[in-house]
């Protein structure tokens, strides 16, 4: 199988590599680029653990051919923090106890970012709709909901009440 050239931007850096056509974006990110924050949970586009942003849109990297991402701007969870400062969504997930085992967390955070980038003050229903495709088995989702609410602009008090 012939390799083809793939150029894309990943977390702000230009990446050029050769991949076989049957390589998924998930495989390139995890194996070639070492971005193991991209998780494979079901491999069939259901659980959302592999969610990355492609030109700002949340997509399942397990169901996206790497070559389809040619020319695209990809953001993984590793690209969320800037200059050592966590993104407010990451900070809110920590403070609200929205992280338990952490396997769904990267995908959950990226799906939340995609939502808040479009709608900085979503209602509870809008958050639930945006995150419906991201499965969590630990939290019962309440604290994830709280965290995303807290990270939205409608909330000026991001710290959780003791």
């Amino acid at each position: 199988m012939k390799k083809q050239l793939l150029s894309m931007t990943v977390n702000g850096e230009e990446v050029n590599l050769a991949v076989t056509p049957n390589t998924t974006l998930l495989e390139v990110l995890r194996e070639d680029l070492g971005l193991t924050g991209v998780k494979e949970g079901c491999a069939e586009g259901v659980c959302g653990a592999c969610t990355v942003l492609m030109d700002g849109n949340p997509v399942r990297s397990c169901l996206t051919l790497a070559l389809e991402a040619g020319g695209a701007d990809i953001v993984t969870v590793e690209g969320m923090a800037t200059g050592g400062n966590l993104h407010p969504i990451q900070q809110a997930f920590i403070e609200h106890g929205a992280v338990q085992c952490g396997f769904c967390t990267p995908g959950m955070i990226l799906a939340s970012k995609a939502l808040l980038d479009r709608n900085s003050d979503p209602s509870e229903d809008e958050i639930k709709t945006a995150l419906a495709g991201n499965f969590c088995r630990c939290t019962g989702y309440r604290k994830i909901l709280e965290a995303v609410s807290a990270a939205s602009t409608g909330h000026t008090e991001p710290r959780r009440k003791e």
């Binding site: 924050g37 966590l86 920590i94 952490g102 003791e162």
Partner: peptide, 13 residues
């Protein structure tokens, strides 16, 4: 209710 020590490494990947 103190945030978990392992949550930082989990939100950054």
């Amino acid at each position: 209710s103190i945030p978990r020590i392992d949550s930082r490494s989990k939100v950054t990947g």
